[in-house]
Design a protein around this nucleic acid. Sequence first.
DNA 1: CTTTCATTTCAATGTTTCTTGAAATATTGG
DNA 2: CCAATATTTCAAGAAACATTGAAATGAAAG
Lengths: 109, 109
Amino acid sequence: MTEPEAAARLSALAHEARLKIFRALVAAGPEGLPAGRLAEAVEVAPSNLSAHLAVLAHAGLTRVRPEGRHRIWSVDLEAVAGLVGFLVDDCCQGRPEVCAPLTAIRPSC
Amino acid sequence: MTEPEAAARLSALAHEARLKIFRALVAAGPEGLPAGRLAEAVEVAPSNLSAHLAVLAHAGLTRVRPEGRHRIWSVDLEAVAGLVGFLVDDCCQGRPEVCAPLTAIRPSC
DNA sequence: CTTTCATTTCAATGTTTCTTGAAATATTGG
DNA sequence: CCAATATTTCAAGAAACATTGAAATGAAAG
C-alpha cells in the first residue's frame, strides 16, 4: 500500500454518505446490494449515489458484479485490512505494550 | 463512535500530508514529536503544518503537550481502534469466515 | 422490437478545503 | 527586559469536491 493509495481510500470513506454506503455494504456481506437498494438505504439521489460508488470503487474498496439489470456492490475487506495495517505500521517498535489499544480492533467475530 | 465523528476522523487522515504526519507520529510512539521536527519530516510549511495538526487534533486523533518552548504531538491509538471498529461493524453476522481478512489487521506486534 | 427499469454520464453551480506569507503569541536564554 | 526560537493565527486566493437535474446507456420483459 502506497501513501497516495491509502489517502485515496481514506478520502473515499471520509464522506458521510459514502461512509453510510460502505457500512451498509459491510453489513450486507459478500452477497452485496444493488445500487437501487443502497440509494433507498442512505437516502441519496441515484446520480449522486452512482458518483459515490464510483469513488469507492476507484479507491479499491468495493467491487461490482452485474446481475440481470442490476449492479451488485460489495466491499473488499482485504482492502480495508490493508489500509488499516498501513495506518498503524511501525506502531510498536519493540514495545508491544504501546499498541495494546490496537489489539481491540478485531470486530465482533 | 457516531457517523459524523468517524467521517471527521477519516477526513482528517484523508490528506497526503496529514497521513504522513500521522504515520510519523505513530512511529514516534507515546513520546511524540515537536511540530518543528514534523515540519522537516514531511516537508510542509510551518503554518500549513499547524493547520493540519489542528485538523487531526480536532478529530480526536492526536494529543499535544507543551514542553519548554515546544509543543509535542502524539497519536491516540484508542481513537484509531475506535474508528476501525466502527468501519467494520457488523462485518460478519454469524459467519466468521466472512471477515477472515480482518483478522490480519493486527499490526506487527 | 419497443417499452420499461436500473443505473450512469454530463455539465453547471455551489460549497468546502488547501495553501501561502505576514503578523501575532508565547517561551526561554542572556 | 530584550532577543531569539517555536508555533499558531489570520486573510486571501486557488483548487478540489459535492450536488443537481436532465439526458444517455444498457439489459430484460412483454
